[in-house]
Design a protein around this nucleic acid. Structure first.
Lengths: 90, 90
DNA sequence: TTGACATGCAAGTGATCACTTGCCTATCAT
DNA sequence: ATGATAGGCAAGTGATCACTTGCATGTCAA
């Protein structure tokens, strides 16, 4: 659970989740190009790759291999427990 | 919104929210003693004070003065928007 | 097989963060 | 007024984080 909160602490990673929330099964290069064109972020491939590794370690992103492509998708399950933690009694 | 996610990234601050979620209007010293006794955390007063400042800046905690006491309460409104950001389409 | 494409690994750097340390201000009871 | 209580301010330190840099691996088309 700690990994989830720390993964969400970075604005670039939250934008990546926004992008994966709109379209599943994107490759690293697809995510990179969409971040620059749609969201105005100028990050290198390696930076995004490390962000995706953090998101995957937190269980917020799952990946599957397809040849030389690695397809990334969002896994929103860990997000469900977040708000519930302090909003139970409403 | 960025301040909210960064505030939640620290485990001690999340424990503070847990404690304030159980009991409103706690002073700094009350929070300190409960963190050590109930949650086994050995943090100094200054450390907790700084954590509370971060939580207040993020809008997750509101305070009110009562003489020499400063009473802290949780403000869960910013938390409602978090999970909704990526769970809209379910 | 060769070159281009997509990704992986790891050391290094600058900035940010959590925490400490020391001193100061304000409020209350006696 | 004086001491005790509750809290505030700010400089300094060590660890963590995001990012870069350079090179390596794996896959596919020609």
């Amino acid at each position: 659970m700690d990994d989830v909160f720390k993964a969400l602490a970075d604005p670039t990673r939250r934008t990546i989740l926004d992008e994966l929330s709109e379209r599943d099964d994107q490759t690293l290069f697809e995510i990179c190009s969409r971040l620059t064109t749609k969201h105005g972020l100028g990050s290198t491939r390696q930076a995004i790759s490390q962000h995706l590794a953090v998101l995957e370690a937190a269980g917020l992103v799952r990946t599957r291999r397809d040849g030389r492509y690695k397809l990334h998708s969002i896994t929103p399950e860990p997000l469900r427990q977040i708000a519930d933690r302090w909003l139970r009694d409403d």
